[in-house]
């Protein structure tokens, strides 16, 4: 039950993008097409899960004073592994994501979960939390990128869905479009959750 709670936490209650609003630099930059969103989400989920498990296993060995450098080395190693394998096996995807894969190292979600969660609990709970956070990030940026792709190109996952008479709103795939779409989504989610609190008389 505890494991399930840890897992669900990242998907909704503490969704990194919509609730905590951390790690959004990659979420704003690569979300120009739905494929990018999914790929970026998977890359981050992999790095986050592997490094959370490792950091949790090493939590009694790592001295408190050097914990941050240790976390960063672990995260950087997994990020570079993903970077190399992506370059070798998915070159077209790598071309689009370019700099944002190496930048997973400094993505606050990874360090935040290492510091706030993985370094305090066992590897199984750390893995559940990391998977939840990673998938929470993935669904959030995939949703953003689907909306942006639909607006800016009239396609979804590369398939034409709008009729030919649809004029693409180019702003959707330009940087301002990312802020507009994300802002509206965060607002919507705040609205939904606010209502829920009222219903249960928790205020």
């Amino acid at each position: 039950m505890q494991l399930f709670k840890d897992f669900i936490n990242g998907l909704w209650n503490e969704n990194p993008i919509f609730r905590m609003v951390i790690g959004i630099c990659s979420a704003l930059a690569v979300t120009t097409s739905a494929n990018n969103g999914i790929a970026m989400g998977m890359a981050l989920t992999f790095v986050l899960t592997c490094s959370s498990i490792f950091i949790s296993l090493l939590r009694h060995i790592i001295p408190d004073k050097v914990r941050i450098p240790c976390y960063i080395i672990v995260v950087a190693t997994f990020t570079t592994v993903v970077d190399l394998f992506m370059k070798a096996y998915f070159p077209s995807l790598y071309e689009v994501m370019g700099i944002f894969i190496p930048l997973i190292v400094v993505n606050c979600i990874v360090l935040a979960r290492a510091e706030a969660f993985a370094s305090k609990v066992g590897p199984v709970r750390a893995a559940a939390d990391a998977l939840g956070m990673g998938l929470g990030y993935t669904w959030a940026i995939t949703l953003i990128s689907m909306i942006r792709e639909l607006m800016g190109a009239g396609t979804l996952f590369g398939y034409q869905v709008m009729s030919d008479s649809f004029t693409p709103w180019v702003i959707g795939i330009l940087p301002p479009g990312a802020f507009i779409v994300m802002g509206i989504l965060v607002g919507l989610i705040n609205m939904i959750t606010r209502k829920k609190v009222k219903d249960t008389h928790c205020q």
Binding site: P63, V66, C70, I73, V74, V81, F85, K87
Partner: peptide
């Protein structure tokens, strides 16, 4: 502190060298 950091760095270096070897030809 020094020993732990060093061991982690060496291990990470080894992992990176191996994955570089594995992916570079490709």
């Amino acid at each position: 502190m020094i020993v732990v950091l060093m061991i982690i760095s060496i291990a990470s270096g080894a992992v990176l060298a191996l994955s570089y070897e594995a992916t570079n030809p490709k």
